[in-house]
Structures are given as structure tokens and as C-alpha cells.
Deep mutational scan, measured.
Amino acid sequence: TTVKVNGTKYKFDTPEEAQKFAKKAADKYNLKVVVDGDDLRVE
């Protein structure tokens, strides 16, 4: 599972880890998590 934040992709072994990271990033930058198929985007 990958998470894309500000054009940078981060790869995670499990969707749970990816979800946690995406949520933290979204909170930090005051953005929202967008599900894109198997991957997540923070925008």
C-alpha cells in the first residue's frame, strides 16, 4: 500500500500502517485522506 503526500510516495507493508500514517499526515497538514484504489492520497 502506498500513501502519497505532497507528491512523495511512502510504501507500507500493511494497509493499517498506511492508514495510520495517512491520518497523521492529514491531521498535520490539515488535509484529508483520499482512497485511490488500493492506495491512499493525502490532499
Rank of each mutant, 00 (worst) to 15 (best):
T1V: 12
T1P: 06
T1R: 10
T1Q: 07
T1H: 11
T1L: 10
T1I: 12
T1Y: 15
T2S: 08
T2P: 01
T2C: 14
T2G: 03
T2W: 13
T2A: 06
T2M: 08
V3T: 01
V3H: 01
V3S: 01
V3I: 03
V3C: 03
V3K: 01
V3W: 00
V3A: 02
V3R: 00
V3L: 02
K4W: 15
K4R: 14
K4G: 04
K4M: 15
V5Q: 01
V5K: 01
V5H: 05
V5T: 02
V5L: 14
N6V: 06
N6R: 11
N6L: 14
N6M: 14
N6T: 03
N6A: 08
N6W: 14
N6I: 06
N6H: 13
N6S: 05
G7R: 06
G7Y: 05
G7K: 06
G7W: 05
G7L: 05
G7H: 06
G7E: 04
G7D: 05
T8K: 15
T8I: 14
T8V: 14
T8E: 07
T8L: 13
K9M: 14
K9L: 15
K9Y: 14
K9P: 09
Y10G: 00
Y10Q: 00
Y10C: 07
Y10D: 00
Y10P: 00
Y10A: 00
Y10N: 00
Y10T: 02
K11H: 13
K11R: 12
K11C: 13
K11T: 13
K11W: 13
K11I: 13
K11E: 09
K11G: 04
K11L: 11
K11S: 11
K11N: 09
F12E: 00
F12W: 01
F12D: 00
D13W: 06
D13Q: 12
D13F: 07
D13N: 13
D13C: 11
D13P: 10
D13H: 09
T14N: 09
T14Q: 03
T14E: 03
P15D: 05
P15I: 11
P15F: 14
P15N: 07
P15M: 13
E16A: 10
E16G: 08
E16S: 08
E16L: 08
E16D: 09
E16F: 07
E16P: 02
E16V: 07
E17K: 07
E17P: 00
E17D: 09
E17R: 05
E17Y: 02
A18W: 02
A18T: 01
A18M: 02
A18S: 02
A18H: 00
A18F: 02
A18I: 00
Q19S: 08
Q19T: 08
Q19E: 09
Q19N: 07
Q19P: 00
Q19C: 15
Q19I: 14
K20Y: 12
K20W: 11
K20S: 12
K20V: 11
K20Q: 13
K20D: 12
K20P: 00
K20T: 11
K20M: 13
F21V: 01
F21Y: 05
F21C: 04
F21N: 00
F21M: 02
F21P: 00
A22K: 01
A22M: 03
A22C: 05
A22R: 02
A22W: 03
A22I: 04
K23N: 09
K23S: 08
K23W: 09
K23D: 07
K23C: 12
K23P: 00
K23L: 09
K23F: 09
K24D: 14
K24A: 14
K24M: 14
K24H: 12
K24P: 00
K24I: 12
K24C: 15
K24W: 15
A25F: 15
A25E: 11
A25D: 02
A25Q: 14
A25G: 02
A25H: 12
A26R: 04
A26K: 04
A26Q: 04
A26G: 04
A26Y: 03
D27H: 10
D27N: 09
D27I: 11
D27M: 12
D27C: 14
K28L: 13
K28R: 12
K28E: 10
K28G: 06
K28N: 07
K28C: 15
K28M: 14
Y29L: 13
Y29M: 10
Y29N: 06
Y29C: 11
Y29V: 03
Y29P: 04
N30T: 04
N30F: 08
N30S: 08
N30W: 07
N30D: 09
N30R: 09
N30Q: 10
N30P: 03
N30V: 03
L31H: 07
L31R: 05
L31V: 13
L31W: 12
K32V: 14
K32Y: 10
K32C: 10
K32M: 12
K32L: 12
K32R: 12
K32S: 12
V33T: 02
V33D: 02
V33L: 07
V33N: 01
V33E: 02
V33M: 05
V34N: 05
V34P: 01
V34H: 07
V34S: 07
V35H: 09
V35F: 12
V35D: 07
D36R: 05
D36A: 06
D36T: 05
G37L: 04
G37R: 04
G37F: 04
G37K: 05
G37P: 03
G37I: 04
G37Q: 05
D38N: 12
D38V: 10
D38A: 11
D38F: 11
D38R: 10
D38W: 08
D38E: 11
D38H: 10
D38L: 12
D38K: 12
D39K: 05
D39C: 15
D39T: 14
D39Q: 11
D39E: 14
L40D: 03
L40T: 03
L40G: 02
L40K: 02
L40C: 07
R41K: 12
R41F: 08
R41Q: 06
R41E: 05
R41V: 15
V42W: 03
V42N: 02
V42D: 03
V42F: 06
V42C: 07
V42S: 02
E43Y: 09
E43T: 10
E43C: 14
E43R: 06
E43L: 09
